[in-house]
Each structure stands twice: as structure tokens, then as C-alpha cells.
């Protein structure tokens, strides 16, 4: 091995040189005002409030409306380029509450205001719109946005016979209760969540309980196809399966359900349509 030693040392030196040079790459120019948004939900609310021009950076999944895509992306949901955020010197950074606690802790010391936004109910969603609008000086627009959402709810015709609904998030029977935004959407659209009265917002349901509850409508946004649901053992006697009231990701824009955003009214209307039609088949 000894006779390779010069080569090895040369190689180490060469690598060190490359690394040193790489360290000299300058960062992009600094901006000093504006806001950074990491949560797709908040990004959409801001755009809807008319504050799109204040956003200086976003994350990859902040993809609506179209204009959002022209803004610099600083990472994806869980890996955000903190150095770049500090570099940008934003006035405010909006983060999602639980998942992004880490960024909250890291950015607080730099004098950047970190605002955590998480809407786990319709009421929380309205409150958050007001809060975001206040932070951006757009309070004049918040009332309009909230009223529009409420009007959409009021305009719905509720089914006389409220269907029992099972809402599937993950294929291991992960579902939601009434203590969640989706739970609220189901209620407002005129459905009865079969797991509505459970305290936790999200949990894994028991197959037996589900079959016993016998839902009239199944909304499965868990990547499973309608055929797979029909094929599940013991599900053939469920009303929703017999009547074909099964809806999957093919039937709805999943963002309008999973995100708490102004576009959620689209999900609300879809749900309402499905619930109205449940016993017409």
C-alpha cells in the first residue's frame, strides 16, 4: 500500500482545493422586505387576499395559483433551506403548526416573525384568514373572503335524508372525526360522519366497526381504486358499495379537500352533490 501514498495525498489535496473553491460561491442578492410562506394552505389564502406580491419565497408544494410558481422555492414541506430564509430577511414567515415546529425554533432568534397557521376546523380557518390578513395589512379583504365561504355553505341544499359517510385518508383505514376541517366539510355538506363523535381528529378505524356502521357514502382519498374497495372482504353488504356510492381521487381535486383553502368550497359542493344523490341510485 505504501507506494500509493503520494497519489492518495495528491487526491486529498485536490479534493480540498475543490471544496475551498466551492466555498467561495457567492449567495444570491438579498431582499429585505416581504414574507416567506412554507405552507401551501397559507400561500393560497394570501393569494386570495390579494397579497401575492408580498411573497418573496415559497416551498415546492405552494403551487396555486399559477403565478405562485414564478416565486423562488426554498425547499419542500419538510426540508427548508433555513440559511436562505435568513438571507432573504423576510418580515414574516408563515409555517404550518405541528410539522414545522423545527423552523419555528430555528428562526425565532433571528428576529424574523414566525407565524404558525393550522386550521383544524372551519372556525379556526376563519380565524386564521383574519390573522393572516392582519399580518399583511389586508384586513379589508378578509371579511369578503370569509363571507364568500359562508355564503357557499348557505347556498347548499341539504339532503332530507342525511347519508352516513366514511372518509378514508389512508388505506389502513385512517379516517377523521368531526373535530377536523374535513369533518366540518362533511357536516356542512349534509353528511353524517360514521366516526364523527371520536375525540381525536385523525385515527385508524377498526374494520369491524366500519362494516357495522354501514356507511351510505364512501369517500376514499387513499390512493385506492373503486374496484379495490368493492373487493374488500366483508364490504359487499355495505350500502355505499351496493349502490356504488364510492368516490376516489379520480372524482375530486384532492387539494381542495386536504388543504384548508378558499377552494375547499369546491370540495364542499362535490360532497353535497354526492350526499344529495346517495339514495337516488
Amino acid at each position: 500500500m505504501i507506494y500509493h501514498i503520494e497519489k492518495t495525498i495528491l487526491l486529498i489535496l485536490a479534493i480540498s482545493l475543490v471544496l475551498l473553491l466551492a466555498g467561495c460561491v457567492a449567495s444570491k442578492e438579498k431582499t429585505s422586505t416581504g414574507i416567506v410562506v412554507t405552507s401551501p394552505e397559507v400561500a393560497e389564502i394570501i393569494a386570495e387576499l390579494g397579497g401575492l406580491d408580498q411573497i418573496i419565497a415559497r416551498t415546492q408544494y405552494c403551487d396555486y395559483p399559477q403565478e405562485m410558481l414564478e416565486i423562488e422555492s426554498i425547499g419542500d414541506f419538510s426540508s427548508i433551506d433555513i440559511e436562505r430564509v435568513i438571507d432573504l430577511k423576510p418580515q414574516i414567515i408563515f409555517v404550518a403548526a405541528f410539522e414545522q415546529q423545527e423552523f419555528y425554533d430555528k428562526l425565532q432568534p433571528f428576529g424574523i416573525e414566525v407565524v404558525k397557521i393550522h386550521s383544524n376546523s372551519l372556525e379556526a380557518y376563519y380565524d386564521n384568514i383574519t390573522l393572516i390578513a392582519e399580518k399583511l395589512g389586508l384586513s379589508a379583504n378578509s371579511e369578503r373572503l370569509i363571507t364568500k365561504f359562508k355564503e357557499n355553505i348557505d347556498d347548499l341544499t341539504l339532503p332530507a335524508n342525511r347519508p352516513k359517510v366514511y372518509f378514508e385518508i389512508s388505506s389502513n383505514l385512517g379516517t377523521v372525526s368531526d373535530n377536523s376541517f374535513i369533518g366540518d366539510l362533511i357536516i356542512k355538506a349534509g353528511g353524517l360522519n360514521i366516526f364523527g363523535d371520536i375525540k381525536q381528529d385523525f385515527f385508524i378505524a377498526k374494520n369491524e366497526d366500519l362494516v357495522k356502521a354501514n356507511p351510505d357514502v364512501i369517500i376514499a382519498l387513499s390512493q385506492v381504486s373503486r374496484e379495490e374497495i368493492v373487493q374488500r372482504r366483508g364490504w359487499n353488504n355495505i350500502t355505499a358499495v351496493q349502490k356504488g356510492n364510492i368516490y376516489t381521487v379520480d372524482d375530486i381535486n384532492i387539494d381542495t379537500v386536504m388543504r384548508t383553502i378558499p377552494r375547499s368550497t369546491q370540495a364542499l359542493q362535490k360532497f353535497n352533490q354526492w350526499f344529495l344523490n346517495h339514495d337516488k341510485k
Binding site: S171, R232, R233
Partner: peptide, 13 residues
């Protein structure tokens, strides 16, 4: 679910 192990596999026919 996979890492902690669960026996609630939902079988299709």
C-alpha cells in the same frame, strides 16, 4: 404502520 407492525390488513377477495 409497517414499521410498528399491525395485523389490521384489509384483505380484498
Amino acid at each position: 404502520g409497517t414499521l410498528m407492525g399491525s395485523l389490521n390488513h384489509v384483505f380484498t377477495n
